[in-house]
Amino acid sequence: MPAPVLLRPAAAAFAFGRRAERGVRRRVESGAGELAERAVARVLGGPLVDALAEDLVRYRVVERMSSPVLAAGTVERVLDHADTAGLPQRIADRLLADGIAEQVAERLLAGPELERIVRLVVASEPLHQAIADALESPGAEHLLSTALESPGFGRLLAQVVASHAVDETVAQVVDETVARLPRSPAMWSLIDEIAGSPAVTEAIAQRSVGFADHVAGTVRDRTRTADAKLERAAWSLLRRRPRDTVPEGGPAGAT
């Protein structure tokens, strides 16, 4: 009688035993899970959680646990570790890749928070101080000079100047200024001050003297030309040859 035939009942018994064991284990696991869930639900629904929370607060458990953690520099180490692991970069990449940043931006632009934040920032004294410090720093001057020397600034300025809005604004400002200036007592006092200043009066006097000299010079030139013409006319009337010109040495008896 071959051996496999002899072992077949034993193998069947073994397989049956295993199936029975798996079935029992499955039932025990499902039953234990349900039992555990029921136990947890009972605990969470009962007064134990409230009593535990009250005890946590009463005995300052969180503070006591967090103090040594903070004192030991654990947070810093965690942050350093996150930094060295490139966590911020990965978070930023993930946010940008998933479009979360766009959603945040849209939400900010749509909501009133942005306006409140801007108002808060603009009204903050540190910001004013920072701007004042920045403007007084040599870097600001260098930045300004660099910007002014750049060709892009020239093009930008040309575009701004050529824009229709600037034309309208300038025309409006000029119109308003011209309309307001005659009504301004300060302007008239300024004009009086300027007109009465010694420098202006001296300049006007010099201009007047210069103008008078110019007019007199013109009159002199023309009359001297007229002198010669009148003489020539007189000599032609007399049908005689014009007199000899007295040499530039001047009057004969004058020297």
Binding site: R224, A226, D227, A228, E231, V246, G250, P251
Partner: peptide, 8 residues
């Protein structure tokens, strides 16, 4: 001429 004329 060095002498002043009538018009002048």
């Amino acid at each position: 001429s060095a002498f002043a004329g009538l018009a002048t």
